[in-house]
Design a binder for these strands. Sequence first.
DNA 1: CGGTGGAGTTCAGTCATTGAACCATATAGT
DNA 2: ACTATATGGTTCAATGACTGAACTCCACCG
Lengths: 184, 184
Amino acid sequence: MALGRGYADQDCSLARALEVVGERWTLLVLRDCFYGVRRFGDFHTHLGIPRAVLADRLKALTAVGVVERRPHTTGVEVDYVLTERGLELWPIVFSLAQWGERWLAPEGSRRLFSHAACGTDIGSSGACPACGTVPAPADLLIRQGPGADATLRDDRVSAALRSGPHRLLTDLFPSPAHTATSDA
Amino acid sequence: MALGRGYADQDCSLARALEVVGERWTLLVLRDCFYGVRRFGDFHTHLGIPRAVLADRLKALTAVGVVERRPHTTGVEVDYVLTERGLELWPIVFSLAQWGERWLAPEGSRRLFSHAACGTDIGSSGACPACGTVPAPADLLIRQGPGADATLRDDRVSAALRSGPHRLLTDLFPSPAHTATSDA
DNA sequence: CGGTGGAGTTCAGTCATTGAACCATATAGT
DNA sequence: ACTATATGGTTCAATGACTGAACTCCACCG
């Protein structure tokens, strides 16, 4: 985590994990990855993170293989998407969000997750009460909860998330025939 | 998290949670709390954290009600123990550690957790394969794994954790008739 | 050929962390 | 009573990280 001297002398997997995801904005960037954010500019405006820090975090996450940088074949656009390693961070992101909902959201839940296959809201453990399984993030739908505050942010990512349920990991802004390379 | 300006304008429970546990050493302090560390000096020597930062983190965690400061009736000793709120952080600590074990521990697991009631090692989801339940931290035993590196740290906390299985949350250094207040 | 949008980099100012030294209180020893 | 030690901090200068604004670079657009 480049924490001063790092946690290198810790002999603890938690410390090692924190070196990767423990820096200041990193987990919020990863949360956005799960939500379907893929573009530098979207991370930037959605999070309000300084560009330099965002560039640094994306570089670090790419270096450790948590996200993958996927340049478009044409244009300057770049996609950042989670790798297998990154996808397995979901329990961390989810459990942090759940704890926050439970203890720091007196207004009610801000976001709700449901199992796409059966439509059931998942429990705080991450398991689907109907199926008894723990759905992978790709099988979850996210939607606004009663505690969401629409006045806080006004960017296209917030708008997209507000506009209705969205399946995790799918691109929030798919480009139908955008700059046209694999154009039908 | 006092991250520059904090994550106050995020409308996200994950961001709120990170303001509480996202600062640099905080999750390692909490990990030690789960392991049974309770004293200022033990956190200090076990983690190698600067005293000023440790004092600050403990103050912050106490302020948000994640740990509780419990002065002894006599003496200068102080215990820091997890509250209910703090105990519910276990999934976060555990999932981070599991991810670290999975992806950042080529030498093998450093620490293993087993369900005290049945002796079965718990899975990466935190569930006990034998019982099918997800044991609370108080029902878990921690012990060294094959990937543990005894050369890294040499303090009494590390020694106590090396010496054999230990039940989470129980005091690593119980004082039998220490300074004698409730002395039999 | 100028303008625009995406994706960064650079840089001065500010804030947090570090490590060492210092302080306060309580008990233990003599 | 006086000193020594342990515990749990606080203070402070130096270092490093973060912030915000400005700037760059490149591909396309018209």
